[in-house]
Amino acid sequence: MPRHTGELAVHGHLQQREGETLLVVDERLSGHDTFLSTTLHLEQPVHVPELPVRILTFDDGTVLSPLDPVLPQERTGEEWSGTLLIPHGARPPAIPGDLAQAAAEAGVDTGGWSPAEARHLLTFLGEAGSASVRTERIGMIITALGDRS
Results as ranks from 00 to 15, higher is better:
P69V: 10
G107S: 10
H88E: 07
S132W: 09
S81N: 08
P72Y: 01
R134T: 04
A94Y: 14
R54P: 07
P93T: 00
S114I: 01
G107D: 08
I95C: 01
S81M: 08
R91W: 04
H88N: 09
V133C: 06
Q101M: 11
E78Y: 14
P66M: 03
L99D: 07
E79G: 14
D109H: 11
R54V: 14
F124H: 03
P115E: 00
V108Y: 10
L99N: 08
E117R: 15
E78D: 14
G111R: 08
S132A: 15
E79R: 12
Q101V: 14
A104P: 02
S65H: 14
L71G: 01
E74R: 13
E74D: 15
A102N: 05
E127Q: 11
G112V: 07
G112F: 09
V108E: 06
T83C: 12
T76G: 05
L99A: 08
V133T: 09
L125F: 05
E105P: 08
A116R: 05
G77A: 04
D109R: 06
R54T: 15
V70D: 06
G112P: 03
L85H: 12
W113A: 02
P96W: 12
L125Y: 10
G111L: 11
S132K: 13
E105Y: 02
S114E: 02
R134I: 03
D59F: 03
G97I: 13
L125D: 06
T83F: 01
I55Y: 03
H120V: 00
S132G: 07
G82W: 02
G112Y: 11
G107R: 11
E78W: 15
A90I: 02
D109L: 03
H120K: 01
V53K: 09
R54W: 09
G107F: 10
P92N: 13
S81T: 10
T62Y: 12
L122M: 04
R91I: 00
A94K: 14
P87M: 11
Q73H: 13
L71C: 03
G126L: 05
I95K: 05
H120L: 01
A104I: 00
P69S: 12
P69G: 09
A131N: 12
S114P: 01
S132C: 10
E117I: 13
E79C: 09
W113V: 00
A104Q: 06
L121D: 05
A100C: 02
G126E: 07
E79H: 14
D109F: 08
A103W: 00
P52Q: 02
S130E: 12
L99R: 11
L67F: 12
H88S: 06
R54Y: 09
V108A: 06
R54S: 14
D98S: 05
A90P: 05
